[in-house]
């Protein structure tokens, strides 16, 4: 089994995000691994552990700091790492999906994992786009994957605890919401060991795609920091809450 995980290095939302012009000030933010990618790496490793194969993690190196992330992935059980050297911190999902697709093609994957979404997916997620480029089926919102005889059985989650099970003849792209088990912890001593021994393949970005979106403005949402207060007697408050809920279709 050739198992591939496509990951995204994204600005950390743990900090307040500074803006420069019409976009995030990429020079002054920290980049972290998309949280759902942690799930998809775990799910990929779980599949490998169940049926064998190799896990290759592929990501676009936006700010020349992807190595840490790739080492972490290897410490968690991935076998190989590939980075697309773009050095373009603002590359959108469309660009990244195109470059990743080109890099993944050569790996002739049986199954590709991606995080179901990322907080900066303003133009959509890379998972379904990679599926489109590679002409593979895509299912997102997945919370468990089992593979046998060239077929994957995946559970997809809808809202409210309802889900559905699908069987898909491989290859396919899976958008992982949650791995079947919580992502394992990679002790830093192991990560450091990997950093000294592992090699990371590098690939030039190839192919061209764009989101076709022009950023006109980027700013913190106006009404944050404090709740909009509802005044009046308890009865009036109750009435206003009920009204509010009704207007949102929640009561």
């Amino acid at each position: 089994m050739n198992i591939v995980v496509a990951i995204k290095h994204i600005p950390s939302i743990a900090d307040d995000l500074p803006v420069s012009g019409n976009n995030v000030d990429f020079d002054s933010v920290d980049f972290v691994l998309n949280e759902f990618d942690e799930q998809s790496i775990e799910q990929a490793v779980l599949v490998k552990e169940a049926v064998g194969g190799t896990v290759t993690v592929v990501g676009v190196d936006l700010i020349e700091e992807l190595d840490n992330i790739l080492h972490l992935a290897i410490a968690k059980g991935a076998d190989k790492a590939v980075k697309v050297t773009a050095d373009e911190p603002g590359a959108d999902s469309h660009m990244q999906a195109k470059w990743l697709s080109e890099a993944i093609k050569g790996l002739s994957p049986d199954i590709v994992f991606a995080g179901v979404q990322a907080s900066n997916d303003l133009d959509g997620q890379i998972g379904p786009m990679i599926a489109a480029h590679l002409d593979m089926p895509y299912i997102g919102g997945v919370s468990s994957v089992e593979v046998a005889d060239g077929t994957a059985t995946v559970n997809k989650e809808f809202a409210g605890g309802v889900g559905a099970k699908y069987s898909v003849s491989l290859p396919m792209v899976v958008g992982v919401q949650a791995a079947a088990k919580p992502p394992r912890y990679a002790p830093i001593s192991k990560v450091r060991q990997v950093a000294q021994t592992a090699t990371i393949d590098t690939v030039e970005p190839s192919g061209d795609a764009s989101s076709g979106l022009t950023f006109k403005k980027m700013a913190p949402p106006v009404a944050t920091g404090h709740a909009e207060m509802i005044d009046g007697s308890p009865k009036e408050v109750a009435a206003k809450i009920v009204e509010l809920l009704k207007s949102k279709g929640l009561a």
Partner: peptide
């Protein structure tokens, strides 16, 4: 498999240098 809370704390310590998942600048 360690407790998820401990794991989150460690993960955050590794990325943010603090266990509360706060950005360094804060």
């Amino acid at each position: 498999e360690i407790d998820s809370g401990v794991q989150n704390a460690l993960q955050s310590l590794a990325t943010n240098g603090n266990w509360m998942s706060k950005g360094k600048r804060l």
